[in-house]
Simulated assay, not measured.
Amino acid sequence: MHVGAHVSVAGGVDNAIERQTEVGGNCGQIFTASPQVWAGPDIADDEATRFRDSDLGPWVIHASYLVNLATPKDDLREKSIASLQAECDAAARLGIEFVNVHLGAHTGAGVENGLDNAASAIDDLDVPSGVTLLIESDAGSGTKLGDEFAHLAAVCDRSHTDIGFCLDTAHTFAAGYDLSSPDAVAETVAAFDDTVGLGDLHCLHLNDSKHACGTNKDEHAHVGEGEIGVDGMRAIINDDAFRDLPFVLETPTENGNGFAWNIDRVRELRAASSTSQ
């Protein structure tokens, strides 16, 4: 079972390895730089070597929050492409399989234009061999794209690049796809498969939600402690469509619990299902 957390690279990207081990993870996700500024990766050769030599994985690089592939603005588009290209190149250097990014917002240009813009921006990238760009599902608010499975499918259809996808369970739930029971999970999985295709799903951001289904509110909760709840999270963790994917936690640190507690909870919910069978 591949389960881990989004950990810090403070002091060097190779420090993510020890931090992941400390919380009990065996795969994970990182930012290569602050996600709030246009700062590219700054990785020393010795750091990259130590990271590549680790047995943990798979790993995901999460792109900067500033990246907006769907934007109609030329300057923001250019910055977004340059930033994402740098992350893809860093992934190749580090031996990381996946770079994860949101589609962004069309900011008034309209859904279809936004999807066209995103597909075009993706095709302006030179994604290195061995690296796959993943488009993450979104909670959906304002003019953000990616909350509908149809948006993900449309970008895949319009792009000439071999992209994949990452489902965030909290985002998917907030976007209106129910995940709070085994039946609801099965229905949502079927909807994704029919619209996008499970063969292109490579990662799951495993987060519970502090807000109800369909609220478009993106706020993560501890596994089993939010609106998705224990039954829903257990069904997700053990669904045949997901169980072999890397589960990456972006859960909060609050109420005395952090990543280690959530990783243990995920393993307990997998074990509980195995025992019941």
Rank of each mutant, 00 (worst) to 15 (best):
V266Q: 02
T32G: 01
V101C: 06
T188C: 08
L125A: 05
K210I: 02
C156H: 12
T21H: 00
E87K: 05
A119Y: 06
H6K: 07
A221M: 14
I81Y: 14
R19A: 13
L76R: 03
I135S: 07
A153D: 01
A10N: 10
G176C: 05
A44G: 13
T188S: 15
D14P: 03
A86P: 03
P182Q: 11
S273R: 10
E148F: 00
N100W: 10
N238F: 11
R19Q: 12
V248K: 05
A241L: 08
S180E: 12
V155E: 03
D168K: 02
D138T: 00
L179R: 09
V131G: 09
T251V: 12
T21K: 13
G114P: 08
D74L: 14
D200G: 11
A105N: 12
G25D: 07
D45A: 14
G164P: 01
Y177P: 04
S64Q: 08
I237N: 01
E268Y: 01
D239C: 15
A109I: 06
C27K: 04
D162P: 04
Q29E: 12
F149D: 01
G224R: 13
G146N: 10
R267S: 08
E47M: 02
L84E: 07
A90F: 07
R50Y: 03
V13T: 07
G258Q: 03
G11F: 14
C213T: 14
M233W: 13
D200P: 00
V67E: 04
K217S: 08
E187V: 07
S129F: 05
C203P: 00
A175V: 01
L249Y: 09
A16E: 09
V230C: 01
T188F: 04
I163M: 09
A90H: 12
A48D: 10
S137N: 10
G214V: 02
A191T: 13
C27D: 06
C156V: 01
G199C: 07
D264K: 11
D123C: 14
D231F: 08
D218W: 05
G146L: 12
G57W: 00
I135E: 05
D14I: 00
L94E: 05
L94F: 01
I237F: 09
I122W: 02
A221T: 00
A139W: 11
I61Y: 03
T195P: 04
P41W: 06
D74P: 11
A119E: 08
T253V: 15
A48M: 05
S80F: 08
T188P: 10
R158N: 08
A44L: 14
A63S: 15
Y65C: 10
I228A: 13
T251A: 07
V9R: 04
R19P: 04
V60F: 07
G140R: 14
T251E: 03
R50E: 11
R93L: 06
V223F: 12
I17V: 15
E254G: 06
E47F: 03
W261A: 14
K144D: 13
V155R: 00
P246Q: 07
F149N: 02
H171I: 03
L201P: 04
E78R: 12
E97N: 08
T169E: 06
A92P: 10
S54E: 02
H62N: 02
K210A: 10
F98L: 13
R267F: 02
I17Y: 00
G224S: 06
H62S: 06
L115H: 11
N262L: 11
E187M: 05
E250A: 08
H222L: 15
W261E: 08
M233I: 14
A119P: 04
L115E: 10
